[in-house]
Design a protein around this nucleic acid. Structure first.
Length: 442
RNA sequence: GCGGCCGUAGUUCAGUUGGUAGAACUCCAGAUUGUGAUUCUGGCUGUCGCGGGUUCGAGUCCCGUCGGUCGCCCCA
């Protein structure tokens, strides 16, 4: 084995000297990044499929933006909570750039520049890969995929209901139900008004809300300490005694009519950490409450105006693949397996040319076909056919000259004979056709 | 940024009071050259994460570092 290759990368720091970090080629990906081998990738594809199918059923259309954005798209106008964890650097053109940590600013930028070309409400979704430079943990890496659905240009609480409905549909397509997860609905504007009544100044309110977000799991004593005089009133809200957001009521009514009433709860402890939310907010949690939030979203009516100058109301949610996969594993929900070719051609070395002709023909007809390019022994080829997960083995042996081929269903080990002949146009015609093989091999 | 645990073959791991390494599976090649789930035989790979220290001697003890993992911070 050759010694590990060592490469040094210059690392420029804004305030310090040039730092060098050596990278050892160990076969491992960079910290917090994931390799997706075929089994994991198949599972990921299963998740994507559910996301896209739910989006399609909900009337959302797909868009995509750049992975790399200008740093100021994130530093200036969206919540500054994100900034400390940005994956950012200076590019070769001396631009300050960042790998996108979330999709909303990109969406806002795109919508703001082109929204006149689209009739409102705009219902778009995307499955971007997002990045954050932070310490990897359970269900959280430096990179993840996130399903984003947004509705722009609609003030009605039915927009929130729509999104929660699509969210629930997506989860149900993955095999999750109201016994597994709960959608907690809250209202940030209600909190804002509440805090105003309690005498909290306008500038302090965002800070207090962020504190509330953090104190969700704190003890009563810790809450009293942090909140002081507010503690009593806040506790009353959390226990559901003194909160009555009209918007939450309307949203829940809509969600109920869409058929997901039992997925939803009103929970005023949810306020969301990001600063740009302005109205109804919601989070999806596992019922056991053991994992991080599976999804989260809410209304951000001011963000487009701040980012792009267009005053459009908007509401959206994001759902990451990491926590979701964790939950699916916990619920023992099996994901699709990696699939190889469905037909494997087993051929005698002398008949390889014929085998290739059949292979090409079948592939052009839409079948997935594999074979052993090394033309190994008959038995080895059959072994390979099974190892690769093919359903059928098509046997091209010495009888091929007489127009005969063997057909074997690998799992059942049943074998029968099929015929081939050259068509008038030189094409090879199989009889029966592959579509009918299931009938032949019984 | 802080703390707990961990780091041995491709993978999962074992390695006894410190005496320079093993198993299973996988992979590759075979077992009268045309029929594969089992079986048998053989083969491959590790600077025991990296660096330093203690010691006659370190996979084993100590320190550092990198990485993994879990938690805190924070949060999608």
């Amino acid at each position: 084995m050759s010694p590990p290759l060592e490469i040094t990368h210059p690392r420029r720091s804004l305030d310090g000297p040039l730092r060098i970090r050596s990278v050892r080629m160990t076969g491992q990906p960079l910290p917090g990044f994931r390799d997706f081998f075929p089994p994991e990738h198949a599972a990921l594809r299963g998740i994507f499929q559910a996301w896209r199918e739910a989006s399609r059923c909900g009337g959302f259309t797909e868009y995509e933006g750049p992975e790399l954005e200008s740093l100021e798209l994130y530093t200036e106008k969206s919540g500054d909570e994100i900034v400390g964890q940005l994956y950012h650097f200076t590019d070769k053109g001396d631009r300050q750039v960042a790998l996108r940590p979330e999709m909303t600013p990109t969406l806002a930028r795109m919508v703001a520049s082109q929204h006149r070309n689209y009739r409102k409400p705009i219902k778009w979704f995307s499955v971007p890969r997002l990045f954050r430079y932070e310490r990897p943990q359970k269900g959280r890496h430096r990179e993840h995929y996130q399903w984003n659905c947004d509705i722009v240009g609609e003030k009605s609480p039915m927009a929130e209901a729509e999104l929660i409905g699509v969210l629930c549909l997506g989860l149900s397509l993955l095999g999750l139900g109201p016994k597994d997860v709960v959608v907690k609905v809250s209202d940030r504007s209600w909190w804002d008004a509440f805090l105003e009544k309690q005498g909290v100044g306008e500038t302090e309110r965002p800070t207090v809300l962020r504190t509330l977000d953090r104190l969700e799991s704190a003890t009563t004593e810790q809450r009293r300490e942090k909140l002081g005089a507010l503690a009593g009133a806040v506790e009353a809200v959390w226990e559901g005694k003194s909160a009555d957001s009209e918007a939450v009521g309307q949203v829940r009514k809509g969600v109920e009519a869409l058929g997901y009433g039992d997925w939803c709860e009103t929970d005023y402890r949810v306020v969301r950490g990001l600063a740009y939310y302005t109205g109804v907010v919601f989070e999806v949690h596992d019922r056991a409450g053991k994992l991080r939030a599976v999804a989260g979203g809410g209304r951000y009516d001011d963000l487009l105006k701040r980012l792009g100058g267009e005053d459009l109301p908007a509401v959206g949610f994001g759902m990451g693949d990491a926590v979701l996969a964790e939950l699916l594993r916990e619920k023992k929900i099996t994901m699709p397996q990696a699939a190889g070719a469905e037909i494997f051609i087993v051929a005698e070395a002398k008949e390889q040319e014929m085998a290739l002709q059949i292979t090409g023909q079948l592939r052009r007809s839409g079948f997935s076909v594999d074979f052993d390019p090394g033309a190994g022994k008959w038995g080895k080829q059959l072994e390979m056919a099974e190892a690769k997960g093919a359903r059928w083995a098509l046997l091209v042996g010495r009888e091929v000259g007489e127009g005969r081929l063997g057909l074997k269903e690998l799992a059942s080990r049943k074998q029968s004979e099929i015929r081939w002949k050259s068509g008038t146009d030189g094409k090879i015609c199989l009889e029966p056709t592959p579509g009918e093989w299931a009938k032949v091999c019984i």
